[in-house]
Nucleic acid binder design. Sequence first.
DNA 1: GAACAGGCAACTC
DNA 2: GAGTTGCCTGTT
Length: 282
Amino acid sequence: MQYRAEKNKIRLASLSELDPVKTFECGQCFRWNADENGVYTGVARGRAARIWAEGDSVYIDADEKDVAEIWRDYFDLGRDYCAIVFSGGEYLEACARYGAGIRILRQDGWEALCSFIISQCNNIPRIKRIIETLCREFGDPISAFGETLYTFPPAERIASLEPDDLSPLRCGYRASYIIEAARAVSTGRLNLEVLADCDYDTAVRELKKLKGVGDKVANCVALYGLHNMSGFPIDVWMKRALKKHFPEDFDPRSLGPFAGLAQQYIFYYTRNGKEGMGNERL
DNA sequence: GAACAGGCAACTC
DNA sequence: GAGTTGCCTGTT
């Protein structure tokens, strides 16, 4: 085990409000990794933290000031997810029960954009590998918990590169998409801060102007990177679930302004619930 | 070696 | 506008 100074063990939430396993393993993020004790280490907004559950509580080990100023917001703890209920039938209710404790993280827009461009036609272990290499090669090192972690490199830094510079990532044809996206963000041609305040249609339309960003990636970025809760990414798993449990002409909008949370519940249930058992690797 | 993957774009009809 | 194909790389 790594050295572990128990200097900051701060209660963050109850397990029913924030379930670390569900939240980190539901496909929305790629940079939180659990050790053998179920303690997750991650870096976001240039800071490192550890998160774990103990009984009914969830604790965080991080700078105390960061907990108040960064992490509470990152985990979207200002919103009562239990108060968001969907009228979408029994199946959706089962998904919501199963996924209780999932939170939609307030991730950085550029990080989400870059990560989900990488995710296309790719599996999670490889996506994680590519992103970690990207951070190690181009991010800034930070010391935390006795190890060296890396921040996600800013768009400006990636914008100055050429596709060949990304060859250590071995991300193939996605390299040019990443750089193109970085340039759009760093020049302001794509303003993610502005987009975060735009309606869903505008956000998706603008994101899709980028090469390598289609419907799926745009919806992931809207939901996970812009925290637009109307975002409703549909991948092969969602397609399968929708086909089986919803009418042919199902429109995510019918689920209301928090359709994205419903999507997350459905996805997690179909991937990890009894329907998805035995299909660990897609 | 061939087929395929948590997708997209470019091309076809 | 629906359907097909190439794309990098890694895995099966």
